[in-house]
């Protein structure tokens, strides 16, 4: 059974993992960089890249040591080749190329989004293609019809901010710190989600996409008005995001005939309000709801190793001149969405 070493470095988590094609996670490590970025109120690409190159080599050796597996027993090296912060992606990909050449093992260049998209199958052996995936993180907000390995139909994407970006920016506006997702969720528990009237951009419209920039601006205005408490704004903001996600996902379900499940992945899937609402939506459509464990929702290398395993077994390996890509759409045939903030 193939054994894959996975490497992830596309944002502010440095990660390495060893995963088999029969779903065994032999070791996985994630080194976050939150404290390095906190003084800047967000992820600084150059600081992230500097941290990746310092941390990654020892992380890889730790993972191999923890699993007690020499590199020679690994069948392939998988690394995120994009999309993401290009300086960080290059560190992971170059390290992987070096490993690939010296250990004489094939290289698998993995799309980070494919890592998220296939991650639910790593922990749920019953999940089968095709499924509808809401991929919702700090860098992405997409609805994907997942038909098979390497076969993705993008049904919707954000025309401006990603949902996780809206959480981070709103947290900053509310003085809740970085990263914003957990901070907003915690503060929202003490607030009234009906207290602040906030917009639900694009909800009910015929176009399939997401938009969160206007919501963030409304949070700023609510804050500056002085009429609302921070917990009430946080709770109302979170409810507005959930309403947007649910409305758009409900619309996508109409275009996802044959889907065997509704699946969520990405860092925002760690939010309990988002999870709960999606679970209800799935139930109302008689579909199983699948959400990977929280550690697998945020960026990690196990999902990269797993996607690498599926690609390797399908014969999809890459040459050593493969390029790192800041932008890399999973569905190259998707229609261009309006707006400038489309990252993939």
């Amino acid at each position: 059974m193939s054994l894959i070493l996975g490497i992830e470095s596309s944002c502010d988590e440095t990660a390495a993992a060893l995963v088999t094609a029969d779903r065994r996670i032999l070791a996985h490590r994630v080194a976050g960089q939150e404290s390095a970025h906190r003084p800047f109120g967000g992820v600084v690409p150059e600081i992230a890249a500097r941290a990746h190159v310092e941390i990654l080599p020892s992380l890889i050796e730790e993972v191999l040591a923890e699993a007690n597996i020499p590199l020679g027993q690994v069948d392939a090296i998988a690394a995120t080749a994009g999309p993401g912060l290009i300086g960080g992606v290059m560190v992971g990909l170059m390290t992987a190329k070096g490993l690939s050449l010296s250990a004489n093992k094939p290289l698998v260049a993995v799309n980070h989004l494919e890592g998220h998209a296939l991650s639910p199958m790593l922990t749920d052996p019953d999940l089968a293609f095709p499924y509808l995936l809401l991929l919702v993180s700090g860098g992405h907000c997409q609805l994907l019809f997942v038909e098979g390995v390497g076969r993705y139909r993008r049904l919707a994407t954000t025309i401006d901010d990603a949902a996780g970006e809206a959480f981070d920016k709103s947290a900053k506006l509310l003085g809740l710190g970085f990263p914003g997702g957990p901070a907003v969720e915690k503060t929202a528990q003490e607030g009234d989600s009906r207290a602040v009237p906030l917009p639900r951009p694009l909800v009910g419209t015929a176009e399939p996409h997401f938009s969160f920039a206007g919501l963030k601006s409304a949070v700023l205005r609510a804050r500056e008005s002085g009429r609302y408490t921070v917990p009430d704004i946080a709770a109302s903001f979170q409810k507005a995001v959930v309403d947007c996600l649910i409305d758009r996902t409900k619309r996508a379900l109409m275009h996802a005939a044959g889907a065997t499940a509704l699946v969520v992945a990405g860092g925002v899937a760690a939010n309990q309000a988002v999870r709960g609402a999606l679970q209800q939506l799935a139930a109302s459509h008689d579909l199983p709801f699948v959400a990977p464990p929280l550690w697998l929702c945020t960026d990690n290398a196990a999902m990269i190793a797993w996607a690498g395993a599926l690609r390797f077994e399908a014969g999809l390996v890459d040459d050593l001149d493969v390029a790192a890509r800041a932008r890399w759409p999973l569905d190259p045939h998707a229609e261009k969405a309006r707006g400038a903030g489309v990252k993939a």
């Binding site: 590199l71 170059m94 070096g98 010296s102």
Partner: peptide
């Protein structure tokens, strides 16, 4: 170049582990 430095170092580190 910040990126060029890291490209060389990351490659060297990966090669060193494998060899």
């Amino acid at each position: 170049s910040f990126t060029g430095i890291r490209v060389g170092l990351a490659a060297a580190q990966g090669l060193a582990i494998g060899w």
